[in-house]
């Protein structure tokens, strides 16, 4: 078994114009996906990161520079899932079913060094 990390990026499609009905449908789609993983014991961890709060830290000439906070952009990581899968192929299949993709989002899949 290997562990994989899914970085969720919101993408360009904003969900702000959605009607309450549509939001509820999106919640159902999203939750069904995560619930299935959880029930199969494949979901190790998942957290949503706060929007509108991102800092970039770097060290230059022994000085730590702090940039930010950055406003929410489409490149920002909005949250992550850590899942367990037997092979990279299985992890890819799971990721392809992620509703984040159908909402115009981008998901980066990385295997965790084991």
């Amino acid at each position: 078994m290997s562990q994989f990390m899914l970085f969720i990026r919101a993408g360009e499609e904003s969900s702000e114009h959605l009607s309450p009905e549509q939001i509820q449908q999106a919640i159902q789609r999203y939750s069904a996906w995560a619930k299935k993983l959880r029930e199969q014991g494949k979901l190790i961890a998942a957290e949503k990161l706060k929007d509108n709060e991102g800092w970039l830290l770097s060290a230059r000439n022994g000085q730590i520079a702090v940039d930010g906070p950055f406003a929410e952009t489409k490149e920002t990581i909005g949250g992550y899932f850590i899942i367990e899968a037997a092979t990279l192929d299985e992890a890819l299949e799971i990721t392809k079913e992620s509703p984040a993709l159908s909402n115009g989002g981008i998901v980066e899949l990385r295997e965790i060094e084991g």
Binding site: S15, I27, Y30, S31, W33, K48
Partner: peptide, 18 residues
């Protein structure tokens, strides 16, 4: 307000579960 609450649910529930 209701819209906002729903948006928050949309952001959190997928990660934390319903």
């Amino acid at each position: 307000i209701v819209q906002e609450a729903l948006m928050k649910a949309l952001q959190q529930w997928p990660y934390r579960g319903v």
